[in-house]
Amino acid sequence: MTQSLTDPPSGLTLPVWVAAAARAATQVLCGQTFENPQSLQIPGRDQALGVPVQSAAPLQEGEQALAISHCDPGPGLDLTRDLEIWVQARWRQSQTGCLETDWLEIVPGEGIGRKGREGDLCASDFARRLLEANLRDLVSPGQCLQLEVVFPRGRELAQRTSNAAFGVVDGLALIGTQAEVQSSASPDQLRASLDALQLIAGASDFCGSLTLVIGENGLDLAHQLGLADQQPLLKTGNWIGPLLVASAEAGVSNLLLLGYHGKLVKLAGGIFHTHHHLADGRLEVLAAIALQQGLGVDLIKELLGCASMESALQQLEKRDCAEADRVWQAIAQAVEVRSEAYLKRYGAWPMRVGAALFDRQRQLRWTGMTGHSLLAGCGLGIHLQGGEAGFDPSLR
């Protein structure tokens, strides 16, 4: 049963709104009257979802079609709110005919994130499966459908994300692993993480070790490293402080925090809810620890003037790679010290907290001393290029 336009769905991820526009454009290309709302099939669900589309029309005497939708991510702070989405559909010519595996081609248009300047569309597996599930019935055997997706404001909005830190350029990535938005800053997201934690800790084979991964990139790296084979993984968003306490209460004895350096650096400054709308201070934390590590005042002023954490890291590495590693290892150590201090505010638990930070290439680069020990215990120890990190506990 689809939802009516008088009660349009909200809180849907970007791939859903793209899929609705894509199906509307393809319907028009096929000579049909496009449906509004679009009845979308969601992988893994029996019930279709009604998603409104702004408009759809044929172009070039019916050889192409264009549809437009507007993203509604629901309540909360989300930069994709009211994002206009254009999807242009056309039949792609092929002398040999399209095979079953290549009947759909998705072209990244203006404002769509790519994997590098000449790279492919940056889209999640869910986004691709969603498009395939909702377009296959409109494409006859032997036909090849080409979709060009455009976010007119995508390039501008991408400047306010960390996309570039992970090699995504030119616009917004078409990511999302489910239909509904799960805000990493919402209480519902925290509740879901706490429920997942209870399931993990309550399992009969739970041995007391847990890796708390920050975001999708952390989860992907944890699987690549083989951590999932060694101990349970729990993906979290921005509610790191409450999850630290809940983990200790649940009986976790060894907790590894695995995350992007631009996110975990906030913990080194005592910020345990890491959503950027609530608190930042990352460059200030970097500057304070750089000063403690003996960097000169002139360089620290340059770091404070950088536009982002990534540019600050590049500035440090350009000057002296070994020195940059030493600073970041000190930050990883500070994450551990501050996390243990945070726990002590709420109780006395024997849980050890380790930190492991990765860079924009999703390479594991820096750990605190406990993090290094926990990884080594999993057979995944890394070499600390700058030696043991030094952190002055007085910064607590």
Results as ranks from 00 to 15, higher is better:
V245R: 01
I106M: 03
T101Q: 13
T367P: 00
I175N: 06
K263C: 02
C306Q: 15
Q189L: 08
C207V: 00
L343M: 05
E105N: 11
I85N: 14
T161S: 00
D7Y: 13
A192K: 05
A185F: 03
L234I: 10
A341E: 06
L197A: 03
L255T: 02
S4R: 04
F151G: 10
A356N: 00
H277T: 15
R362K: 15
T101D: 12
A192G: 12
G11T: 10
P15V: 08
M351E: 04
A228Y: 11
C207S: 11
T33A: 15
L380M: 12
G218Y: 06
V53Q: 05
F391M: 07
S10D: 13
G62C: 08
A164C: 03
E61D: 07
E180C: 06
G215R: 05
Q32H: 06
A25Y: 01
R396F: 11
C378P: 02
L295F: 09
V87W: 08
C306M: 14
K115S: 06
A56W: 07
T161K: 06
L130G: 08
T236W: 06
R92K: 00
A290P: 14
M369L: 14
A203T: 13
P58C: 13
R319H: 12
V213C: 11
V18N: 04
V353K: 00
Q329M: 04
F34S: 04
S193K: 00
R282K: 14
G251N: 11
T26F: 01
D195I: 09
S339M: 12
L256F: 15
I271D: 05
S204N: 05
G294H: 01
G171S: 00
G218E: 03
P9V: 11
S94W: 12
T101P: 00
L138A: 13
S209T: 15
V327Y: 04
Q329P: 01
V327D: 06
A389F: 02
N36F: 04
G31N: 05
W239R: 07
S311I: 04
L291M: 11
A376K: 14
T26K: 05
S394I: 09
G281F: 11
D46A: 12
G11K: 03
Q88A: 01
G119V: 13
L299W: 02
L316M: 07
C98D: 01
S124W: 01
R81G: 03
V87L: 03
E110H: 11
A123T: 01
S162V: 10
D125W: 01
Y346C: 07
N238V: 14
V169F: 02
L303D: 13
A307T: 06
P350W: 11
L374Y: 12
E249F: 10
W349M: 00
G347M: 08
Q189H: 09
I85S: 14
G296D: 15
A67E: 07
G354R: 12
E317G: 08
Q224Y: 10
G379P: 10
G167S: 08
P58V: 13
E100P: 01
L267M: 14
A158H: 07
D102M: 08
T13Q: 15
L267P: 10
R338L: 03
L130I: 00
G251R: 12
Q385E: 14
A324G: 10
G269A: 08
R155L: 12
S373M: 00
